[in-house]
């Protein structure tokens, strides 16, 4: 049974259609990368799946009792609210200190416990959010553009970490990325969204090809891969599409 399954999702902001008849299902243990140009509805789709947005049409069905770990794109922090990393990790539920130690080690945030969340760098905040999500022992981890602001070696290191986490925890991963062509090589599926699902496939792993070396340099450990978009359908819609695909 799928962890989460959405059928016929449609959503619009006013007259602006954001999602049109989107079907998506995530199976246990798989890594799914969701790509699409800016404004294609990726974040909206994630928000519908996590329950933050209600679709105009369609249904989201979760496995009963699904443990969901969610890492938002970023936190809009209010400076007037004092919050240490240690307190944040125990929100909304108190967690086992041993589990916190493990998650902190896993995400490399040891030593930050007593710092204010608002004083951390963007990358550190991202890792704290990931640690907090891991504390729910998630069956499904949803990450919204987690590599934004990272350089390519940083992105590769994050992907390797995520792959390792999936192997260790056995959780499924749904990750949003704005990079259309370079994706996490461990992705079982890549879904390309532009209001509707344009295409779906597996990443093309070219880590040993000399061209790849030239493109990505060394030290990325094979974490990155290319994704070839194959749009085998024609668009009959009236509205404009701007796909910009190779």
């Amino acid at each position: 049974m799928s962890l989460i399954e959405a059928k016929g999702l449609s959503l619009s902001y006013g007259a602006q259609p954001v999602l049109e008849n989107v079907n998506i299902a995530i199976e246990p243990g798989e890594i799914v990368t969701l790509v699409g140009p800016n404004g294609s509805g990726k974040s909206s789709l994630v928000k519908v799946l996590t329950g933050q947005l209600k679709p105009d049409a369609g249904k989201v069905r979760r496995k009963p009792g699904l443990r969901l770990g969610y890492v938002p794109q970023k936190l809009a922090l209010e400076r007037s609210l004092p919050m240490t990393v240690a307190r944040f990790l125990n929100l909304p539920e108190r967690r086992d200190p041993e589990a916190i130690r493990r998650a902190s080690k896993e995400t490399g945030i040891e030593g930050l416990e007593h710092r204010q969340v608002a004083d951390l760098s963007g990358g550190q905040q991202q890792r704290v959010l990931l640690a907090r999500a891991l504390l729910t022992s998630p069956e499904l981890l949803i990450l919204d553009e987690p590599t934004q602001g990272l350089d390519q070696p940083g992105e590769a290191a994050f992907y390797l970490k995520l792959e390792h986490l999936r192997d260790a925890l056995g959780c499924a991963v749904l990750m949003v990325s704005h990079d259309l062509h370079v994706v996490m090589s461990a992705s079982d599926r890549v879904i390309c969204l532009n209001h509707h699902i344009c295409c779906e496939g597996t990443p093309h792993v070219v880590r040993d090809a000399p061209e790849y070396r030239a493109l990505f340099g060394y030290g990325t450990g094979g974490a990155l891969a290319l994704y070839q978009h194959e749009h085998d359908h024609h668009h009959h819609h009236q509205h404009d599409h701007d796909h910009d695909h190779v």
Partner: peptide
């Protein structure tokens, strides 16, 4: 307290936690 604080910190995180 805990759900209020979570919702104050981030509504997105609160909703994902079932609040």
């Amino acid at each position: 307290w805990a759900p209020l604080l979570t919702a104050t910190m981030s509504e997105d995180l609160a909703v994902a936690s079932g609040i």
